[in-house]
Simulated assay, not measured.
Amino acid sequence: MTNNYKSKERPIALVTGGRRGIGAAIVLRLAQDGFDVAFTCRNEDEVARELCAEVEALGGRGLAVASELQSLEAHTDLLEQIQEWGGSIDCLVNNAGIGSPSRGDLLVMKPEAFDLVLETNLRGTFFLTQAVAKQMIDNSSPHPRSIVNVSSISVELASPERGEYCMSKAALGMSTKLFALRLASESIGVFEVRPGVIRTDMTAGVAQKYEQRFKDGLVPMGRWGETNDIASIVSSLASGQFGFATGSVIHADGGLAIPRL
């Protein structure tokens, strides 16, 4: 391990897929709680620039980087940009991912859909985590270090009409365990947050359906999850306050995944 970290008062976080929804809420909560935050997005557009401005209004620095998660070649450029901007990463939040291209019968799933979802949600996330973990080990830091995977209740709950998505998230759950074991001796905590039904732009199209299902008892808490529900958990895990915990899973689903009779 080398002592070549830049002098920095605030720790550095990287949030993948941080431009909107859960990712944007995480970016802002981390900034509020003392981080400088870089985040990936497909385009450094006005929305991304406004999010950086919000980070700065909270007292931190924000950096938007256009980067495709499934492109392993892009990972090198992404980490170099962040290193030049602020130094080594103290917290990686693996939030980016895609859903099934289309829902349908498991028996007619296309190999192209399977490959796209697994390449993005699993392969891209795994190898970015690998690269960041190596950087964390090679660079000492005065701040706690952590990796937080934002997965899904689909790690456990099967939805045959979107099988490729469920398989990608189930594998991400195992990835959490593997990295937790490998990095425990390096004092890098690895955690997983499993959101349930969260109110975002992505769920707007099925909002009416879920409102009825809430009334029918789908979620014991009887309400939508909000993006800030997830963000507050992620920031708490990134804080270093759970110093003797690693591999831990937080269900943020209002009780949805609890087995019931």
Score class of each variant (00 low, 15 high):
Thr2His: 09
Asn4Trp: 12
Lys6Leu: 12
Glu9Tyr: 08
Pro11Ala: 12
Gly18Leu: 09
Gly21Cys: 05
Gly23Val: 01
Ala25Val: 04
Ala25Leu: 11
Leu30Met: 07
Ala31Phe: 15
Asp36Leu: 03
Asp36Phe: 00
Asp36Pro: 04
Val37Lys: 09
Thr40Arg: 06
Thr40Tyr: 12
Asp45Ile: 09
Val47Gln: 05
Glu50Cys: 06
Leu51Ile: 02
Ala53Gly: 10
Glu56Ile: 02
Leu58Phe: 13
Gly60Met: 13
Gly60Cys: 04
Ser71Asp: 14
Leu72Thr: 10
Ala74Tyr: 11
Gln83Glu: 05
Gln83His: 09
Glu84Asp: 09
Trp85Gly: 02
Asp90Ala: 01
Leu92Glu: 02
Asn94Gly: 02
Gly104Asn: 11
Leu107Glu: 01
Val108Ser: 15
Lys110Leu: 08
Phe114Thr: 04
Leu116Gln: 13
Val117Cys: 07
Val117Lys: 11
Glu119Ile: 00
Thr120Trp: 01
Asn121Met: 10
Leu122Tyr: 05
Gln130Asn: 08
Ile137Val: 09
Ser140Leu: 14
Pro144Asp: 05
Val148Phe: 03
Val150Ile: 15
Ile153Val: 15
Ile153Lys: 03
Ile153Asn: 13
Leu157Pro: 01
Leu157Cys: 02
Leu157Val: 09
Ser159Met: 05
Glu161Pro: 10
Arg162Met: 07
Arg162Asp: 00
Met167Ile: 14
Ala180Val: 12
Ser185Tyr: 09
Glu186His: 08
Ser187Trp: 10
Phe191Gln: 01
Arg194Ser: 02
Val197Glu: 00
Ile198Met: 12
Thr200Ser: 02
Ala204Arg: 11
Val206Trp: 05
Gln208Gly: 14
Gln208Asn: 13
Tyr210Asn: 10
Arg213Ala: 11
Lys215Met: 09
Lys215Tyr: 08
Asp216Cys: 06
Gly222Cys: 15
Arg223Leu: 13
Trp224Phe: 14
Thr227Glu: 14
Ile230His: 10
Ala231Thr: 07
Ser232Asp: 07
Ile233Gly: 04
Ile233Gln: 06
Ser236Asp: 12
Leu237Phe: 09
Phe242Tyr: 15
Phe242Cys: 02
Phe244Arg: 06
Phe244Thr: 05
Val249Met: 01
Ile250Asp: 00
Ile250Gln: 02
Ala252Ile: 03
Gly255Val: 11
Ala257Phe: 01
Arg260Asn: 09
